[in-house]
Design a protein around this nucleic acid. Sequence first.
DNA 1: CGCAACCTACCTTCTAGTAGGTAGACTGTC
DNA 2: GACAGTCTACCTACTAGAAGGTAGGTTGCG
Lengths: 195, 195
Amino acid sequence: MARTRNRKESGTAERVLDIAERLVQIRGFSNFSYADIATELGITKASLHYHYPGKAELGQALITRYAERFSQALVEIDRDRRDARAKLEAYADLYAGVLRNERMCMCGILAAEYQTLPAAMQSEVIRFFDENQRWLAAVLVSGKSDGTLAYTGRPEDVAQGILSTLEGAMLVARPYGDLARFDAAARQLLNGLTP
Amino acid sequence: MARTRNRKESGTAERVLDIAERLVQIRGFSNFSYADIATELGITKASLHYHYPGKAELGQALITRYAERFSQALVEIDRDRRDARAKLEAYADLYAGVLRNERMCMCGILAAEYQTLPAAMQSEVIRFFDENQRWLAAVLVSGKSDGTLAYTGRPEDVAQGILSTLEGAMLVARPYGDLARFDAAARQLLNGLTP
DNA sequence: CGCAACCTACCTTCTAGTAGGTAGACTGTC
DNA sequence: GACAGTCTACCTACTAGAAGGTAGGTTGCG
């Protein structure tokens, strides 16, 4: 068992994703190449095609892993934070963490290049947003119950407003290289949802 | 005078900008080529280089014209709308108009590809955001005076929050092709600023 | 003529992607 | 336990096409 494990498990395929993920979040999907990854990893482009037959497949794998990790983070927030308000703060902090690494949310940057993305990636981007909004809507509903959040209108609409604001705050803050800019927008958002 | 006008003034250079502008706002700066413009215009790539020596120069001209038009629109809002609240609504409607044409705000999409942009374009993007925030901050201040707007904190921070929210709402709404999605976010934003 | 606005015909570099090969580890059979 | 075959993870060497860009020629108007 241990033998089968240490045969590989160094996981070139996974390291490819790590590098590609960073490149996407900084430069965008169409602004990095197989050559960039190959150079950084110290293997050839051809080997990359062995792991991911085409850039479209690599892109899909990228979003899938990103979305899974994000989901896990949401589960952990649900587990660790008591009230809805604290959950929302933790959610905003997820975004701040990405920005702290001088990156943009992957699906945010992919939304910008949406029209040029392979179809499979397009639907995965939508799925990511949908899942986030579902989670946020649930938090908003429970926040109204436990009295830690206040808002008017449908929770779905408010959820989508929260997502938009945070994505936009990242988008605009990054050219300035200014985390405070994001924090200000996030605080303002939370203030608007405080009873 | 009329003679000098109709010699050219059909303005190939201007038509190049029109086409490039549309392409940038839909696909992003690095996702269109000189060949795309040349084909659509019915001239050769080489002729394009006559008008704009390189893509960097074209990009700069693109932002400059876009920013000028935006400034004009802001002047018109100042002229036509009485109170600050109405100005803010008109401002949000500027964004909605862009989205109605199935486009993204040019500087929003350029912010996403910021790291790969020529330096000259980078600073023009920043200038665009700065100018918008200055205008918004002024509106917020006058809104507090005339009692049509309410907010806490520094007007500069609130202004940057408004910009972020609107850019983010466009970014997220476009993959869905759903204008209502943007409107919901905009209404929510304005509600939060209502006394 | 002189110049603006185009053209043809290139060039280089980068792009994703392919064909075909190889070292070495693993598996099944006698 | 040895041999044959297969699989994994890489390699070299290549392709076609698209990218931005250039040199130098042509055309037609004032």
